[in-house]
Structure formats: C-alpha cells, structure tokens
Design a protein around this nucleic acid. Structure first.
Lengths: 216, 216
DNA sequence: CTCCTAACTTACGCATAGGTAACTTACGAT
DNA sequence: ATCGTAAGTTACCTATGCGTAAGTTAGGAG
C-alpha cells in the first residue's frame, strides 16, 4: 500500500539510521537549539524532527513528546550549570568566590549560549506551583541556601539570604542575556565589573576593576 | 437565518454594550491580565474575549488582533514604569537615587503585578533584531544612557555603563519576580536590602540595612 | 414611532501543531 | 540467503487558535 518516494537523495546528507543512543543524543542537541531559538511554546516538534533529518514519530519514540524532550534538555542544562557554579564557589575567600562565580557563569553563557537561552526563557506555565517560574529560580534557591548558612554564621539575618541570592543571580543572568547580544567586551572584563559591583558596590567602584584571583 | 439564543441571562452579569472607549479600556485590562498569566504565545484571543464577556471579533475591531492588543498593553506599561523610575531618580544624592529607584520599582511590582509580569515575560520572538529580547532590555538601555554620562563626568569608563545598568535592572527584576511569589517581607524591607547591596556591596553589607531617605 | 448606526453576535475558513496507527526497510546474526 | 528486529516512514486524526464574512440588535436622534 504505502510506497516510499524514490529516494534519489541528491547528494550530501550521508548517513541516516543511527543507533538509538546516538539519535537520542542528537535530538537533545537539536532540541536545545530550537527551544533556545523559539522558546518552549513556539517550538514545534516538526521543526526539531526536520532539523534532525528525521520524522516526527522518532521524537515521540525517544521522549514521549515535546514536554519530555524539553524536560531532558532542561535537566541536563541545570545540572551542568549548577555543577559549574558549585565548583567555582567551593574554595577561596568570600571575595574570590564572588569573582569566580561571576566568571564561571559568564563563561557558561559564552560556551553554551543555547543552553543558557533555554534556562533564561520562560518555562512552560503548566506544571509548577502558584506563580510564574523561571528555571533560574531553582538555581537562585540553591544559592539562597548556601547564603543562609553563611549569613547565620556571620550574625546576619538569615531571612534576608534569598533576597541577596536572587539579586545576584538576576544580575548575572540579565547581564549574560545582554552580553549574548553584543558579545563585547570579553567575558573576563564583564565579570570584573560584575564582581566589583557585587563586592564593592556602586559606592566604592574602582575605575578599572580587575580580579584578585589570577585568571586561570 | 441566524437566530440568537434566547438570552435568559440567569442573573448577575449586568450590562453589556459598552461605548467604544470603555470597551477598549476594559479589553486592555483583561488583556494585560491574561498576557500576564499565560505569556504572549499561550494567550488566546478567545480567552480574552470570554473574560470580557464579549465575542472575538470585538477584539479584532478594537486592536486588529492579538499583536495589536499586546502592543498597546506593553506600550502603556513601559511608559508607566519608566516614568515612575525616572521620577524616583530625578533628585537627591547618588545613594538616595539608588534607594529610591529600588523602592519605586518594587512598589511598582507590588501595585501592578500583572503589568510587571507582562514586562518580565519573554517578548514574542518575531519583531526585534538578532537576539532574544526582553522588554526590560529597553528600560536597561535607558538607564545605561544615564549611567554613561554620569560615568564620563566622574572619570569612569563609559563603555562599562551598560554593564552596570543591566546588572541593576536584572537584580531588581529578578528579586521582584521572586517577591511576587513569596510576598514577604515588605517591599520596603526588600528595597533596603537591594539598595544596600547595590550601594555598599557584599563587603560592607550592614546587618540591618535601612534607607537614608525618609520613608515617604 | 421609525430608522440609523454603533455595538454586538454566530458561524465559518484555514493553517498549524501535537500525537498516533499502520506500514516499510536496513542490517546484523544465524 | 533469509529473517527478525530496531529504526524509520507516510498519512492520518483531532484540537486549537487566528482571523473574517455576514447577519443581528439596542437605543438614541429626529
């Protein structure tokens, strides 16, 4: 009954029929790119399939649907960025931690623009509790926990910790978004300014900020 | 041919048939609420019409379509928030300006949660240039201009002005988003912390920050 | 009371997009 | 060589949602 078109395949696109694991990996890559470009709602499974040179049902076979793929993409990206930041703030003086965190995040923005875009975009409204939810909120929450203990030890009001956590994440996120547009100056330089602002404040802003940490 | 349903209108919803101006105003209100709740893409004209107890074509008559209504909503909101912030930073010492700006913005978040949500959500990808665009970006740009001149006068690198502008807007935006979820502590208190962070930095963070400005 | 018009309505057209059923084909193991 | 299965395909169903054509009605001016 069903006759496939004569596949004369002009030239060029070489191999189809990847093993499951590879196809899965490829679809995650493609999915991240498309979600990054269009946002969740405006992304169509068709476009993802097309870009992967594959038909729609393949996507459903591997991920159950749009949400499933999105969930996997987000999960991986979150894991990656959280690990990277956690590593950055694991050692050093407080100031060094601030500097390293800013640099780590901006470097992430630079190296994984698509992943960052996915995280920065609105999450689908569906699942979550009450309000609107950005994915970065979860990151901020984790930072907030770290802050809370630090605050307690230093005799500060632990209730205020989330404020500062969200403030810093918002700062670096928004700057990251802007930076992806202009791509100048270098992330190192931007990180210097961000860290200076966060650490010294506008009041004691140095004219030409630089990191105390040696640039790795 | 077309027979309307017997309109027995159980009870309660009183008047339909508003004059054009009022209907328009109502649709803007309803539209803002729905856009706030769902984001641009996920908003349907139907829902707006339903909530306004009106049929779809009315929306098209007044605004030409979804984009038209969205544009009007955004325009009004941008105008409002920019005016409010501009007012806040128009007088006083630099520090006072920072404090007043933070308070003004957070008060805006509190008083106009729907409007803020619309601005904080992703804008439709369509129109703008290259990258992804948040509406707040425009606000940040204006702030950047102000900073640039201030920086020049003070002998700082004007090229860095946009960094600080975006950092501060991002800070306050993200905190605002978080605050709409938890609604505690008071905006005044949150503004104190934000202003303290922006002005003093983490380094000289006071234990119990308060504004230099008298609370109006 | 009549009639005109602004304010509405129903009922579609049509495109997009998520998801699925049924079928086909490459390829490696026996 | 053949045959089983993983990998992939076409072709559909259904829902939703933007936008529009054509018809209806309230209510005030003359």
């Amino acid at each position: 009954m069903l006759r496939y078109r004569n596949r004369i395949e002009p030239v060029g696109d070489k191999s189809q029929r990847l093993p499951a694991a590879q196809r899965r990996a490829q679809l995650i890559d493609v999915g991240r790119a498309v979600f990054a470009k269009r946002g969740y709602e405006a992304t169509s499974v068709e476009e993802i399939a097309d870009r992967a040179k594959v038909s729609k049902p393949i996507v459903y076979e591997h991920f159950g649907g749009k949400e499933g793929l999105y969930a996997v993409v987000v999960d991986r990206e979150m894991d990656y960025v959280v690990r990277r930041i956690a590593e950055a703030i694991s050692t050093g003086t407080p100031r060094e931690r601030v500097e390293r965190a800013a640099l780590a995040f901006l470097q992430y923005v630079k190296d994984h623009p698509d992943g960052f875009a996915v995280l920065a975009h609105d999450a689908p409204i569906t699942s979550a509790r009450g309000g609107m939810s950005s994915l970065l909120n979860d990151v901020a929450e984790k930072v907030g926990d770290v802050f809370a203990t630090t605050f307690k030890e230093a005799g500060y009001d632990a209730k205020a910790a989330p404020i500062y956590a969200h403030a810093l994440i918002g700062m670096v996120t928004f700057v990251g978004q802007w930076w992806t547009d202009v791509r100048k100056p270098s992330v190192e330089e931007v990180a210097n300014h961000i860290a200076a602002l966060a650490w010294m404040g506008l009041r004691h802003l140095p004219k030409r900020p630089s990191l105390t940490t040696s640039r790795r």
